[in-house]
């Protein structure tokens, strides 16, 4: 019996390992199949959208934002509420909070009061809030009046989508917000609805960057970690 004991356990171990390997192989195969279904689950190739409607964006099979987020603020120009072409260089030397939004987007609307308060708090200092509405001009003008948006708003349809693509958002969802430092370096790109604590935290890092207390890679790392902690704290 003593001689059989270790052999018996070794045999049992081999059998268990074989069963486990089989189950794992099967689950890996299932995971692949599910992923393939998710990727190809739409029963048709992507369609085309109405060219006249800036909200109506065709979504390709590869929908994730695969492009690289730029290190520096790209050079672009869009029209303001009055229809005047406004280059981004107009805010040169300032840190920027560039918020991409649309009137049909509920979280974008919810963000407006927060962005207004940020703009008011930093008025006359080295930071500006800028809205980029990817929407119809008339709707944006009406909405801006209704919500009393007092920070600059640029408007565009395909040209605004092109600007979004320059920030690495090829198939944008809204809102998303870009934070730059005073040198025009892109410090963070936040996808989704912003909340007060997140903005305050990112802006504190931007300020540290502007005052030379931290370098860009370190600021980005700290922002990433800080946002993770905030998300955990709020159960996001």
């Amino acid at each position: 019996m003593n001689a059989i004991g270790p052999r018996f356990f070794a045999a049992a171990l081999i059998v268990l390992l074989a069963i486990w390997a089989g189950i794992r192989m099967h689950s890996v195969h299932n995971a692949r199949q599910q992923s393939a279904n998710q990727e190809h689950g739409v029963a048709a190739p992507a369609g085309t959208a109405s060219a006249s409607d800036p909200r109506d964006v065709a979504v390709s099979e590869a929908t994730g934002p695969h492009a690289v987020i730029p290190v520096h603020l790209p050079d672009f120009s869009l029209k303001d509420l009055a229809g005047k072409a406004t280059p981004i260089s107009e805010w040169g030397g300032k840190s920027l909070v560039i918020n991409f939004w649309a009137t049909w987007c509920a979280p974008c609307r919810r963000e407006i009061p927060l962005l207004k308060s940020i703009a008011a708090e930093w008025a006359g200092r080295d930071l500006a809030v800028l809205g980029i509405a990817v929407d119809y001009r008339d709707k944006v003008k009406e909405f801006a009046g209704q919500f009393k948006i007092d920070y600059p708003v640029l408007i565009g349809d395909q040209d605004a989508l092109d600007v979004a693509a320059q920030f690495g958002m090829d198939s944008p969802a809204f809102p998303f917000t870009v934070f730059t430092d005073g040198r025009g370096e892109v410090v963070a790109l936040f996808v989704g609805e912003l909340h007060r604590q997140q903005v305050d935290f990112i802006l504190s890092q931007v300020q540290d960057l502007n005052h030379g207390r931290v370098q860009l890679p370190e600021a980005r790392r700290l922002i990433g970690e800080g946002l993770e902690k905030l998300a955990e704290k709020h159960g996001a």
């Binding site: 369609g47 085309t48 409607d53 987007c105 509920a106 979280p107 809204f174």
Partner: peptide, 21 residues
């Protein structure tokens, strides 16, 4: 087919249009 939706966490996708067979 055209449809539009959002994430509860605070993000909205532009209207999506697809040709379906």
């Amino acid at each position: 087919v055209t449809y539009q939706g959002c994430a509860e966490a605070g993000l909205c996708y532009p209207p999506i249009t697809k040709v379906v067979f």
